[in-house]
């Protein structure tokens, strides 16, 4: 299986790497090879997602898979322009005070293996 490329560089900044069907006007993230609406692979073009959205819901996880250190916070953020809901970890010093509806920002970070990961922070903290 080809590894998904979730992040791409655009004008020196990172953005989430989606695509869009020009005919149906639907944005996909992660990318799809075939538009689920017109079932064609010819109308898809690159589309970088915006990095600001609204917190739809979240949770603080206390018990997880063995490879994860707990507690950590995760959530879904709605990118209103793209029409895409994105899942990612949330980094926040006081996660208990997060609220559904908060404005969130996507932050990109390169790990030791050179892979670019992303997470959410509150836009104004």
């Amino acid at each position: 299986m080809t590894k998904l490329k979730l992040v791409k560089e655009r004008n020196g900044n990172y953005v989430l790497n989606g695509n869009k069907c020009k005919v149906c006007n639907i944005v996909f993230f992660p990318k799809k090879e075939v538009c689920i609406s017109c079932f064609s692979s010819n109308n898809l073009e690159e589309f970088g997602l915006e990095n600001i959205g609204i917190l739809h819901t979240y949770t603080i996880v206390h018990r997880s898979f063995p490879q994860f250190n707990t507690p950590y916070t995760i959530g879904y953020v709605d990118l209103l322009n793209s029409g895409v809901r994105v899942f990612a970890p949330i980094k926040d010093s006081a996660p208990d005070s997060l609220n559904i509806g908060d404005e969130m920002k996507i932050i990109f970070e390169t790990d030791e293996k050179g892979q670019v990961n992303y997470y959410f922070v509150r836009k104004v903290e």
Partner: peptide
């Protein structure tokens, strides 16, 4: 990215 089943339902 850390989504367990309990976490998914917790968010719901």
């Amino acid at each position: 990215m850390g989504l367990t089943m309990p976490a998914l339902y917790a968010m719901r």
